[in-house]
Design a protein around this nucleic acid. Sequence first.
DNA 1: TTTTTTGCCGTGTGCGCACACAGTATTAAT
DNA 2: ATTAATACTGTGTGCGCACACGGCAAAAAA
Lengths: 362, 362
Amino acid sequence: MTEPIRIKDIAKRVGVSSGTVDRVIHNRGNVSADLREKIERAMEEMGYEPNIAARSLANNRKTVTIAVILPDYRTDPYWEQPKEGVERAAESVRHFGAVVEFYFFPIFEPKVFLTVVSKVLKNQPDAILVAPLFLKEAQFLLSECAQRSIPILSINTQIENAEELDYIGQDSYQSGVLAGRLLNFGLSDGDHAMLVNLDKEVASARHLQEKERGFKDFFKSVEQKDVVIHINVLEDFDDPEKMKAWAKEQLKLFPKLKGFFVTNSRAYKLAEALPSTTYPWAKIVGFDLIGPDLRLLEEGKIQFLINQNAWHQGYLGVITLVNRLILKKRTQRILYLPLDIIVKENVEYYLKRTLESPTMVV
Amino acid sequence: MTEPIRIKDIAKRVGVSSGTVDRVIHNRGNVSADLREKIERAMEEMGYEPNIAARSLANNRKTVTIAVILPDYRTDPYWEQPKEGVERAAESVRHFGAVVEFYFFPIFEPKVFLTVVSKVLKNQPDAILVAPLFLKEAQFLLSECAQRSIPILSINTQIENAEELDYIGQDSYQSGVLAGRLLNFGLSDGDHAMLVNLDKEVASARHLQEKERGFKDFFKSVEQKDVVIHINVLEDFDDPEKMKAWAKEQLKLFPKLKGFFVTNSRAYKLAEALPSTTYPWAKIVGFDLIGPDLRLLEEGKIQFLINQNAWHQGYLGVITLVNRLILKKRTQRILYLPLDIIVKENVEYYLKRTLESPTMVV
DNA sequence: TTTTTTGCCGTGTGCGCACACAGTATTAAT
DNA sequence: ATTAATACTGTGTGCGCACACGGCAAAAAA
């Protein structure tokens, strides 16, 4: 075991004081080019790594605030998960002087989102964590952050061509492919399958488009079986009667309809709308571990759920920003979380994982 | 945001010095019962939580060594994974003064295991991380550790009725059930399935027994389909010719044999032994993300792999011991890791996860 | 009573780092 | 030549905690 290198060690090696090394480390200027270079080389050669315990201890007077902008969890249970992940992370990093402030906006209202954004900017946070559901409005937020040089990280929805924007979340295309494979396992030659978007403004929601593309691509690649695919958008998902009527109609239209892929966490709304005679032969693949879906998974009315790790998106989002702000460690800019496949037998592990787990800032 | 409570704060509240509070916290004695009680109550009421940064900084003179006892990774690729997880964790906790020392033993030799154990004990480690493959020998190690009061944590193989032994790993029974469900998806009514133990001394390996029990129980619970189950043990897995002959014989014996469940990471040995005419209709479910299995998953010759998170077993094992030794935080004694379901489409996330990921000890 | 032991408590120092401040040498302005 | 400004560099302090040490009283031994 080699002894850890301290600032003092490299100072002695170069023949300067620790203050000078410190200035180099933090780019505070007031160091001659000559010395600066020598010190940088020494750090490199000796393999200096800051002691994070000492660093965070010395830092602990100044607190950094992270603004978290999420859809209102009261209108959609899915958004409870990122919120809880953020809260858990906030608790873990309290000792490091990090504080999070929540800002919520109604899930289908871009205008309110903008209002919230201006409120956030007025409060001058040190960093922002956001679920940028609305493309145009998100780009406004991005340019404002660039101007003020506020670090910003997005979860859940990936924005293309956004240089200064970190992302933690899913690879939507790949999750569509995966859904195709899972559904295909349960289908026979000649069966029909249907992709159902239970959402609003689907045409402008890039992540839904990507899932659709992936789903279609998978079935194009399957050679042994010939499965017919239908695509449907249904905005009246909050009206159980309309849902039931719609489901009935589809089953009549396509008698060989045996599989459904619901592209978000509302698979339960479809499962509950299907007539009971469709069980057990109807196969449903959905997303995420929210209460209603879990119940139906347990009952065998939903076969597979793909976990988008919404909890971890929130958790890791905060941790990543803290790493960047306080510990000055920059991790990779885009992090695709695993697409966990959930069935009855392994669901409990994924639910418990959010509670415990010995983890630690590195 | 409430200010964090420091030792100094509770000392002032009770009207003593910080040294006295310190003695209470560390059970160092020399505190009157009266004061002790007052201080404990004050800590409770004010919600004292030690500052881990300060704690680890103050602790960093003394180093703790963790002895890691694993099967030799050169004889079985599976064991590379825990080893690498341990190495990664060791790197993360170096700053906390933790050092790991590796000890390897041949995977099928209990006697050598005992030799290694006595070598470990002679070196007087502060804690032990072990994969206790051999029950009797493991119990010897346990009693020795109890005598010397050395904290010990096991991974991979769970020992029953071992009070002082923490465990991080899989729930073997449940993984057997899961394998049953996955295989069942691909099978039709009347098909045969076979559980294959490619291992030695299966009768004494509890985790294999448990997988078998879970697998059988699943098929007992399936009512719609009637799938016939066979159980087989095959110790000659290292001889490709014998494997091929065996496979050929089984397929002749049971013409409707369509599915295989290999209870460890050697599914590739079976897949390679099956005649090419069995593809694509042969379904194989195996364990773990080791090189040969991954290749066959990609080729479509293995359908599902269940990830036992071997890497994380090593990683979390070290982190847990460090939490206990240095930060004095005791986490739960038994941690069942998720049973990840791996297919072609999501395998890359699980492989990458072991490399990066912003994590943080709490 | 005097000395020693024991029980109990406060004080002081250092862990590695960040940062304010005080210096010193060099150059520019007067 | 003297002063003033500039460009650097060293010193000191505190973050919260662990632990060694010293001190002071009461109890035990002399």
